[in-house]
């Protein structure tokens, strides 16, 4: 019997991509995706449930669908996406409720996969070059997004302790680059002006979006409890990344950096929030060997991810933006999913 998967954040970039990847697998029988907003990608057999981000109806959904795996992709790691209050609600309160429901007595849930970020390691001058999964932070968290991710990971740790029969996998991702996703990095590199901090050229690490999706898929369809870093091999100086992408560095002063960055951020010139700005000073490397030892293979190194991104950027410069074609329409989707007129294979 295949897996029955419940996915959070189906309407987000990652939720949609992961659902698409899981749909292709024979060993996944059912995919139920939750979100407040409608999916952005075309889905074949994923069921979409509109639910608020505090997951108040989760217990009922779990009971009704008898899912055995929960994939929690809905942790917001890019603080430019929304206001702090909402981010806190989603990351901390959302995770807390999700895990509370997953840990209710008699739930069929046996596996939880959470997509977190390397942001939890922080970024400070006292850091080692490489963080492995156990390396502690050098400084206490200074930004809301880091705070909220650490709180969410704390709930997950407690959950794993209280529910030894549930395999909990925590994935921490490095800076994501990709042709489809928007992050402060992709935005800066696309605009052609990449903020930097004068006198600093940090070593940065990247992971390609396709590797992110397959890493979540890998954890979902296997038994691999534990914490794992997911990042491309190798580190690159920021100046070299910018050069590879054809972007010009826009140096910010090394003192009062945040003060200088704020108006630029407002103008849309430097989309870097404080936690990413710190990366431009000291960089961060997260050691990806533990996940590799488990059998996961990457398609791209840090350099490969940058290269792929740069190539795509040149293409879209030449032919114009390759926009998304698909728009979700509830009636149409429900027609495809449920109408007897649609010829379905017995699998779905």
């Amino acid at each position: 019997m295949g897996r029955r998967v419940l996915l959070t954040g189906l309407g987000t970039f990652w939720g949609g991509k992961v659902a698409q990847a899981l749909e292709k697998r024979d060993d996944v029988d059912v995919i139920v995706g939750m979100d407040v907003s409608e999916p952005l990608v075309e889905l074949e057999r994923t069921e979409y449930v509109r639910a608020d981000e505090t997951y108040s109806i989760l217990t009922r959904i779990v009971e009704a669908t008898q899912v055995d795996t929960i994939v929690h992709t809905f942790l917001v790691v890019d603080s430019t996406q929304m206001r702090f209050r909402r981010l806190h609600e989603i990351n901390v309160i959302g995770t807390m409720n999700l895990l509370a429901a997953a840990g209710a007595s008699n739930t069929p849930v046996r596996r939880v996969v959470v997509k977190s970020s390397g942001l939890v390691y922080g970024c400070s001058g006292r850091d080692p070059l490489w963080f492995n999964e156990e390396t502690p932070r050098s400084d206490p968290p200074a930004t809301t997004v880091e705070d909220s991710l650490m709180a969410a990971e704390g709930y997950l740790r407690d959950f794993a302790k209280d529910n030894p029969h549930v395999g909990v996998t925590l994935l921490r991702f490095s800076n994501v680059l990709g042709t489809d996703i928007e992050t402060p990095f992709t935005e800066a590199l696309t605009r052609g002006f990449a903020p930097s901090i004068f006198g600093f050229d940090p070593q940065l690490q990247f992971v390609d979006e396709t590797d992110v999706v397959s890493a979540v898929e890998f954890a979902t369809t296997r038994d691999c409890p534990g914490i794992f870093n997911v990042a491309g091999d190798g580190l690159l100086p920021w100046s070299e990344v910018a050069k590879l992408c054809g972007a010009t560095l826009l140096p910010l002063p090394p003192v009062f950096t945040e003060l200088a960055a704020r108006p630029l951020r407002r103008l849309g010139l430097a989309p870097f929030p404080p936690e990413v700005l710190r990366l431009l000073r000291f960089g961060r490397g997260i050691d990806n060997r533990r996940y590799k030892d488990l059998g996961f293979t990457y398609r791209y190194t840090s350099l490969g991810a940058v290269e792929r991104f740069a190539k795509q950027r040149r293409l879209s410069k030449a032919v114009g933006p390759l926009g998304r074609q698909y728009t979700y329409d509830r009636d149409v989707e429900s027609f495809f999913h449920h109408s007897p007129a649609v010829v379905r294979s017995p699998h779905t």
Binding site: E240, T301, L303, E307
Partner: peptide, 9 residues
């Protein structure tokens, strides 16, 4: 690993 055309500067 490294992607085909990837070359360091």
């Amino acid at each position: 690993p490294g992607a085909p055309s990837a070359e360091r500067l």
